[in-house]
């Protein structure tokens, strides 16, 4: 998939663990894992908003487009 999720990188920069983020944004760790591994088919604006709010970043920091 040409959309890459840079959530791991941001989490590392912020010194935050996945389960901590999942708890703060109110989604399950299983769903966060789907997002991190690039298996997700879609991301809700509400989820993206919550992630950006907790990690204090922009959507563009999390999502990146690369050509195949």
């Amino acid at each position: 998939m040409p959309i890459i999720i840079n959530l791991d990188k941001i989490l590392e920069e912020r010194g935050m663990k996945s389960n901590e983020l999942a708890e703060k944004i109110g989604i399950t760790t299983a769903n966060l894992s789907i997002l991190k591994t690039g298996k997700a088919k879609a991301v809700r604006f509400s989820t993206l908003e919550a992630i950006c709010e907790v990690l204090e970043c922009q959507p563009g920091d999390i999502l990146e487009y690369t050509k195949n």
């Binding site: 769903n31 966060l32 298996k39 997700a40 088919k41 879609a42």
Partner: peptide, 8 residues
């Protein structure tokens, strides 16, 4: 259904 399940 699969898409719905894989929507985070």
């Amino acid at each position: 259904k699969e898409e719905n399940e894989l929507t985070v």
